[in-house]
């Protein structure tokens, strides 16, 4: 199950997940550079699509966290686009989706943990943050801590399990029927599940941030 090491830089092994993450990052950086070249008051052409996507995510954020949630939109936008594109990367021939490895999804889940807890500390201050763990009674301290940890674990495992499981099913079936069926399965597991899991991950990130900020 270990990711295949593609090459090494100064002795540091670089796995295929990292290489494909770079590819996804390149697509995102170049794409964002191209699409936001000459933004105009009256949107034309591609700008419609870009505004639609940004408004969509910003709408979700503001509806749940309120107007002060607008500051999270860039973070959530990047998260959504990265997960979406890396889920799609598995569909390409010979492609590997970085989200198919637990280390990537765990890193993303920890990112959301840091952002949500950091936001609470910034908004309510450290004392209120620490007090929230012993909220009603001191007895609940372990329960609250385990609750937080299980949120992060389930957040990471859900994305990892879906993407890795989907990829595995496709590769197993590829051994028996290498022509038609994997294509159809790729559409289901790669695109449909990819979009759903990206949406679920980001919406849960919004809910986690909102629950910490309340």
């Amino acid at each position: 199950m270990e990711a295949r090491v593609v090459f090494e830089i100064l002795g540091v092994p670089v796995t295929e997940n990292v290489v494909w993450t770079w590819a996804v990052m390149a697509v995102l950086i170049i794409g964002s550079a191209i699409f936001t070249r000459n933004l105009r008051r009256i949107p034309t052409g591609v700008q419609h699509v870009v505004e639609l996507v940004v408004d969509g995510i910003e709408g979700m954020v503001v509806r749940d966290i309120g107007p002060r949630g607008r500051v999270f939109t860039p973070f959530l936008m990047t998260l959504a686009l990265y997960i979406l594109l890396s889920n799609f990367a598995g569909v390409l021939p010979g492609g590997v989706s970085p989200t198919g490895s637990l280390s990537t999804t765990a890193a993303l889940a920890v990112l959301v943990l840091i952002v949500s807890h950091g936001a609470e500390i910034k908004v309510k201050g450290l004392r209120a943050y620490l007090k929230s763990y012993v909220d009603p009674y001191f007895v609940l301290l372990p329960l609250n801590i385990v609750g937080e940890i299980s949120k992060v674990l389930s957040h990471a495992f859900r994305l990892y399990g879906n993407i890795f499981g989907g990829g595995l099913i496709i590769s197993i079936i590829y051994m028996f029927v290498p022509y038609v069926v994997p294509g159809v399965l790729n559409i289901w597991f790669g695109f449909f599940q990819g979009i759903i899991q990206a949406a679920v991950f980001v919406m849960l990130a919004i809910v986690y941030i909102q629950s910490r900020l309340e």
Binding site: M1, F157, R158, G161, F164, Q197, V200
Partner: peptide, 20 residues
């Protein structure tokens, strides 16, 4: 769809355990 995806996560944990 969101509710189903979140309900599915327990099944995915058992899949992940089986894979491990």
């Amino acid at each position: 769809i969101l509710g189903q995806a979140i309900t599915e996560s327990t099944g995915i944990y058992s899949l992940a355990i089986a894979l491990i």
